[in-house]
Amino acid sequence: MKKRLYLMRHGRTMFNEQDRVQGVCDSPLTELGKQQAECTRDRFFADRNIHLDLAVCSTQERASDTLECVTDLPYERLKGIKEMSFGIYEGWLNKMIPCDWKTSLPVYGGDLFSGVAERMKGTLTGVMERDGFQSVLAVSHGCAIAAFLEAVGQSPRVFGNCSVAVFDWDAQSGSFELVEIWENPLA
């Protein structure tokens, strides 16, 4: 049996506008971020007549605020799909983090990219293994989603705010297959 996962990045935040590292710290959605979420709701989910059975998001406020703009489903907040920690670099300008950040962040109190990949894949596999639904929306973060892409055999990339990666999940094999990436036109 196949299920569908819609993995969405949160809307634009104050730190995105300032080109700052967010990681596990949080900054609020901007007005544009809210408009991006509404655009995804209307131009992706509504225009395609997509029915969602289950909604989950990261424990970070920018993710839950985005989810609430997209659907009125009750939802669960999951630590396993939160953004990676950038340690001491949180709040710094993006251009100031080391080039080898995927492997060097633990030295600075942050997460290892491959560890985030394992955490994301394990958490989302657990969600997909639940009974009683066919279609799930999961709202997460740029680097966490890039890590998940790598964990399921895709090239990691960070896509625009409120863009959606669509996966089919096969219960028999426990594997995720990328179907498409929908880029939000306001991103």
Score class of each variant (00 low, 15 high):
L137K: 06
E118K: 11
L93K: 10
L52D: 09
R62E: 15
G122Y: 05
G126L: 05
F45W: 11
C39P: 01
Y75C: 09
R4G: 00
K3R: 13
A63E: 10
L78F: 06
S135Y: 04
G110T: 08
D47K: 15
C162P: 09
Q36Y: 10
L29Y: 07
L105C: 07
L67Q: 14
L73S: 12
W101K: 13
S27K: 10
K102A: 06
R77F: 00
N161H: 15
F113V: 01
D19P: 01
A63G: 13
V139G: 11
G115D: 13
F45Q: 03
E68F: 00
I88E: 07
C162R: 11
C99A: 14
N16K: 12
G110L: 13
R43W: 09
A63W: 10
A55W: 14
E150L: 02
R48P: 03
G80F: 03
D111H: 03
T71I: 11
I88L: 06
A151L: 01
M128L: 15
K102S: 06
Q36V: 13
T40C: 15
L178E: 03
G23V: 06
L178S: 00
P185I: 10
R41T: 14
E31P: 02
E38M: 08
G23H: 04
R4M: 02
S114H: 12
Q60I: 08
S58D: 14
T59V: 15
F44R: 07
F159D: 11
L78G: 05
T40P: 07
G23W: 03
H10P: 11
Q134I: 02
E76R: 13
M8H: 10
V158F: 09
W182A: 00
G11P: 13
L186S: 02
E83M: 08
L29D: 03
S85Q: 06
A55L: 11
D72E: 14
D26R: 05
R20C: 15
I97K: 13
G126M: 08
V21R: 03
P185Y: 04
G33P: 06
L78T: 03
E68A: 12
F159K: 12
C162V: 08
T71P: 14
E76M: 06
E61I: 11
A46S: 12
S175T: 05
E183T: 00
R12T: 12
G160R: 13
F86S: 02
V166W: 07
T125R: 15
M96V: 03
G109W: 05
M1H: 07
I50F: 06
K82T: 14
C57A: 15
Q22C: 09
G87Q: 01
S140F: 00
V166T: 09
T30W: 07
G110K: 02
S175V: 00
R4V: 15
N49E: 14
C99P: 05
G80R: 10
D19T: 04
M96S: 15
F148G: 07
Q154F: 08
M84I: 15
R20E: 05
E180D: 08
S175A: 01
I145H: 11
Q172G: 04
M120K: 02
E183V: 11
S27E: 14
I50H: 11
H51C: 04
L29W: 06
E118C: 05
A147R: 07
N16Q: 01
S85I: 04
M14Y: 06
L73V: 12
A147P: 01
F15T: 04
H10V: 10
R48T: 09
T123N: 11
P74G: 13
Q172R: 08
G87L: 01
L112V: 05
Y108I: 02
F159P: 09
G87S: 01
F176P: 01
